[in-house]
């Protein structure tokens, strides 16, 4: 490849990377809260679908993307409340409840979508969040394109990740969250309400997962399709492990997955490449597998009571 085209190629991949990483990142940062408190939610995929559908339908009916985002957050909180009720109050197996959530998410969003929009006469597209070019910075060659021409929800990750880090590591609230995941009994003894902390962490987690789902319809594609999340919720679970249960860790590792998505999409559009497209589509999932295999020594850092209810 010539120098200029290959730089352009790299630029287009990297510019797409952050965008592709964003939905996974929101979900993963949320799941960090949940898992830090000792609750694993494999129902992220279903919650993201619920977020995506709520965001789409409210944004479509009201004409406001921000109302759509708000609806997704509320739907996420509600999903989290139900998930927490079953896993924390009833103390049901978290994997079983998560699996049920994935079915419910797929069923309810598919059902509502088909009943509400499948025979619609009006066009169903939204006017999505547009790219905001940062003055001056966006005109820097290469970096301007890669870093400073994104939509607001992509930039939002730069707010959420430091905020999550601050809350988890610099506040009493965050200390309590981590304590109930590591030593719930000790936390209980010193007066931390274990149930309340876990409820809140789960709900923060599902709210952010719903935001990740909302991104897909408000700032990426412009409408809902069934199964739009297509495994990103599960990939977010792997990202949490790979990111060592830390928000910044989740940030970097979801960027890694973003590269695979971006590469896959970019190569598919190249006419002179003869790799079957199914192999390219499989790339992010294969990468997840390899990452789980290659970096599991870090498993030590998993919260101690992950998956175990508190009496």
């Amino acid at each position: 490849m010539e120098l200029i085209p290959s730089i352009l190629f790299l630029q287009s991949i990297l510019a797409a990377t952050w965008r592709m990483a964003t939905p996974i990142l929101y979900a993963a940062v949320g799941e960090v809260f949940s898992e830090k408190a000792g609750v694993i939610n494999i129902g992220l995929e279903g919650v993201m679908l619920i977020g995506a559908f709520s965001a789409y339908s409210v944004a479509f009916e009201s004409g406001s993307l921000w109302l759509g985002l708000l609806a997704a957050i509320l739907a996420g909180i509600l999903s989290g409340l139900i998930f927490a009720f079953f896993t924390i109050t009833i103390k049901a197996n978290q994997i079983v409840v998560g699996a049920a959530f994935n079915m419910i998410g797929m069923g309810i969003t598919g059902f509502l979508y088909r009943s509400m929009y499948s025979v619609s006469a009006v066009p169903l597209g939204l006017k999505t969040f547009q790219s905001v070019e940062i003055p001056f910075l966006s005109s820097i060659p290469f970096f301007g394109e890669v870093l400073f021409k994104h939509n607001i929800m992509v930039y939002g990750t730069l707010l959420v990740v430091p905020l999550a880090t601050f809350v988890l590591y610099k506040t009493a609230f965050g200390l309590s969250i981590r304590a109930v995941g590591e030593h719930p009994k000790a936390a209980d003894t010193v007066g931390v309400n274990v149930f309340r902390m876990r409820y809140l962490s789960v709900m923060i987690g599902t709210a952010l997962a719903a935001v990740g789902g909302a991104f897909l319809v408000l700032a990426y594609a412009d409408q809902f399709v069934e199964g739009v999340v297509s495994g990103r919720g599960f990939i977010a679970l792997a990202v949490v492990v790979f990111g060592r249960w830390k928000p910044w860790g989740a940030f970097w590792s979801s960027l890694l997955f973003g590269i695979f998505y971006a590469l896959q999409l970019r190569i598919q559009t190249m006419p002179d490449v003869n790799i079957p497209y199914q192999f390219l589509q499989a790339l992010p999932y294969l990468a997840t597998l390899l990452v789980l295999v290659g970096f599991n020594k870090r498993r030590v850092q998993a919260p101690k009571t992950l998956g175990v209810p508190y009496k």
Binding site: A92, M103, M106, G107, G110, R114, S118
Partner: peptide, 17 residues
């Protein structure tokens, strides 16, 4: 829409739980 079945299945599991 037949996807309703997924919802019912998920609810069945939750009720069992």
């Amino acid at each position: 829409p037949s996807v309703l079945v997924f919802l019912i299945q998920g609810l069945v599991v939750l009720s069992v739980v």
